[in-house]
Computed example of a mutant assay.
Amino acid sequence: MNFEETVSFIRELYPQKEFVALHEPVFNGNEKKYLEECIDSTFVSSVGKYVDLFEEKIADFVGSRYAVATVNGTSALHISLLLANVANGDEVITQPLTFIATCNAISYIGAKPVFVDVDLETMGLSPKALESFLDAHCIREDGQCINKETGKVIRACVPMHTFGHPCKIDEIAEICEAWHIALVEDAAESLGSYYKNRHTGTFGKLAAFSFNGNKVITSGGGGCIVTDDEVLAKKAKHLTTTAKIPHRWEYVHDMIGYNYRMPNLNAALLVAQLEQLENFLADKRELASLYQNFFEKQKINFVTEPKLSNSNYWLNAVILKDIGERDRFLEYTNSRNVMTRPVWRLMNRLEMFKDAQCGTLENALWLEERVVNIPSGVRG
């Protein structure tokens, strides 16, 4: 790989930037207008018209019946797992190649992650690896999936759509249904991504999205739960609003709840961002195409959307030849004010999860040593 040519090309893509960030937010629409309206209304906390409007618009965009706004994607995933009946002592299958939030949400409940390999094509949970793990280590008993090695119930499965590229979520859904496992999608990175013309986050019982400062659209923080189940949606709103029974003045709470509701201020930002989402996605696809053409000439593997998918290209990525080239590239680019990042360290290699049960993880290990994210922000 020619590092100098790569840095020059990236700088051509972002000509006005002395420092090229990995994914910088863009606020070119009605953000200030809606924020001022929100401030003038004095409804700046978790009650206000923008929260309701955002929930309506995001549900409509992804094709879900209900959406519940939360303070961030981690809280959305935490509540989704609780609503999927994950409890203390249960186990949850997920992928080792993911952001820490996936495993944090599992751990908040007192459940344990079990790590299954990813596909090289999607970098998301592999249905073949999932099925192989279940066949080798689990039994179906009384409508539950039991881990023969630990005796614990595997209550849920959390695949993640890595960098916005959809995993083979329909196959995963079929396997989960056959094994009595709740499917909860970690769609934090995949707003605007589709698999077989269906938006990510709509294949499982529940899904979580994130609107952190580096996402396609952002409210600084923020997340949401989506579901087609009215009962779960109502319970999600109840749990995220400190489980307070609605009343004009009394404070009565009927269960342990969480202060997880998105403030109206953040929702005002998101409503404005949603108005620009289609343009953002078009810009990101154009950027990915430019990168693909450039790296093809360099004979470098640029990560493109998987078959049958339409990816949002949240974070663009290249796959380098080995860990040595990866580290040299990271040093070269970051020393020249072009922000690049390696893929996350595998979850099973972190201190907190070093004793977690794992399937065979060849693909995840191979990718960990080679994947680098490159600047991916909207340029317009």
Rank of each mutant, 00 (worst) to 15 (best):
T218C: 12
E368P: 04
D170K: 12
F211H: 09
L330Y: 01
S75P: 00
L330G: 01
C224S: 10
E369L: 00
Y50V: 02
A87D: 07
I146G: 02
C157W: 00
Y108W: 13
S75I: 10
M339S: 09
K49G: 07
Q273M: 01
K297N: 14
M352G: 01
R155S: 15
I93R: 03
M123Y: 15
E4M: 08
A317H: 08
F99M: 14
A188I: 12
E5V: 01
G223N: 01
C38L: 02
L315A: 03
N301H: 15
R11K: 15
N214T: 09
V216S: 13
D90Q: 02
P127D: 08
H238A: 05
E369V: 00
L277G: 10
N279Q: 14
R261T: 04
Y195I: 09
L315W: 07
N147C: 08
V231W: 10
K148M: 14
P375G: 13
I10D: 05
K148H: 00
V158F: 04
D254Q: 01
L277N: 05
I319C: 10
V226G: 11
P127S: 10
Y291K: 01
D60W: 03
E56H: 06
V338M: 07
T304E: 12
I10L: 10
K17V: 03
T162L: 07
C138A: 12
G29D: 12
V71K: 14
L315N: 03
V116F: 02
K234V: 00
A156Y: 11
G223W: 01
G192N: 11
N279R: 11
P246M: 01
F209A: 13
R341I: 08
Q16S: 14
A76W: 06
C358T: 15
K321F: 00
V116Y: 11
R198A: 06
Y50F: 15
V62G: 07
R345P: 03
L330Q: 07
E37N: 09
I300C: 15
V114Q: 10
C103W: 02
T162Y: 13
N147Y: 04
E141M: 13
V271N: 02
G204D: 11
N212I: 00
L277Q: 13
K307D: 13
M352K: 12
G48K: 02
H137A: 07
F19Q: 02
F27T: 09
L367H: 08
D228N: 15
S64H: 12
E36T: 12
V118A: 00
P342V: 02
Q16Y: 08
T98V: 14
R328L: 05
A87Y: 07
I39C: 00
S126H: 14
H78A: 07
A59M: 08
E12F: 03
A69P: 05
N312R: 03
C138F: 04
V26K: 11
G222P: 05
E331N: 12
H165W: 01
T150S: 15
I245T: 09
Y260G: 04
R140L: 08
F295V: 09
L274W: 06
L281I: 09
W249V: 07
P25C: 04
Y251G: 02
G29Y: 13
S309W: 01
M160A: 15
H238G: 01
Y108V: 00
V68E: 08
S45F: 09
V20I: 14
T102I: 11
A208G: 13
N147P: 04
M1H: 12
H23R: 08
F163W: 10
N293D: 14
H247Q: 03
L53R: 15
H78M: 05
